[in-house]
């Protein structure tokens, strides 16, 4: 997880938009990633984010979860249909599980916390730009919680509503702090296969319709 950044990237640096309502944080992130990727715009609320994304059509948008105008999910709702090629990576300090899952369900391809290191963030941007999903240990934990046995098996009715055994194993290893590469080594599979599993979990997270998934976040404190 620490080296990387040498992964397949085109000759041009990736074009990134930073959306966050804290100017200081935008500056900090910019300073950290700027030489390697190009920050084409910054935005501080939902409306300006939608406008900047439409103007610049970047490769990756770093998206805060909470911000004026409806938060990250609102930005996704208003841009994904018109700009399906833009990829979103949620970058947040909020650990509220329901909001993290909410922004993923709205279409973000990953979630990392704001104290991520610069190299890890660049790695995550690369991964999202390549169409893969970025699951931090925390997100993997949320996902396991949401899909785990805290919901009666009888109500799990479609394939979308459960993880395969392999996907669960991959999620558990990520939650245990394994990088994709280490997961691959541990399970004797290729990194590509790990990415496939993670993308599949992302798809299930976004498409599963069971209402437990949305209510789980409220209920989980009652266990």
């Amino acid at each position: 997880m620490t080296e990387a950044t040498s992964s397949p990237r085109g000759p041009q640096p990736l074009r990134v938009v930073i959306v966050d309502d804290h100017a200081m944080f935008r500056t900090g992130v910019r300073a950290e990633i700027e030489p390697v990727v190009t920050v084409v715009a910054e935005a501080e609320d939902v409306d300006s984010a939608v406008a900047r994304i439409a103007e610049t059509s970047p490769d990756v948008v770093l998206l805060d979860v909470h911000m004026p105008g409806g938060g990250g999910p609102e930005v996704l709702r208003r841009t994904t249909t018109r700009h399906p090629e833009v990829r979103f990576l949620a970058l947040s300090v909020s650990d509220a599980a329901e909001d993290v899952i909410g922004v993923i369900r709205a279409g973000a391809r990953g979630y990392v916390t704001k104290n991520i290191s610069g190299t890890e963030l660049l790695d995550a941007i690369d991964r999202v730009a390549a169409g893969d999903a970025v699951f931090s240990p925390r997100l993997a934990g949320f996902v396991l919680d949401a899909f785990a046995g805290h919901i009666e098996v009888a109500q799990v009715d479609s394939d979308l509503d459960r993880l395969t055994e392999r996907e669960r194993e991959v999620m558990r290893l990520i939650a245990r702090g394994y990088a994709y590469k280490e997961v691959a080594k541990e399970l004797f599979i290729s990194i590509k296969t790990v990415e496939t599993h993670v993308s599949s979990v992302l798809r299930k997270l976004q498409l599963s319709s069971r209402h437990e998934l949305t209510r789980w976040a409220n209920d989980r404190r009652l266990i």
Partner: peptide, 11 residues
Amino acid sequence: LEAATRRGMRT
């Protein structure tokens, strides 16, 4: 979360 909801910062 209450505050964020009131200020319209989350959906």
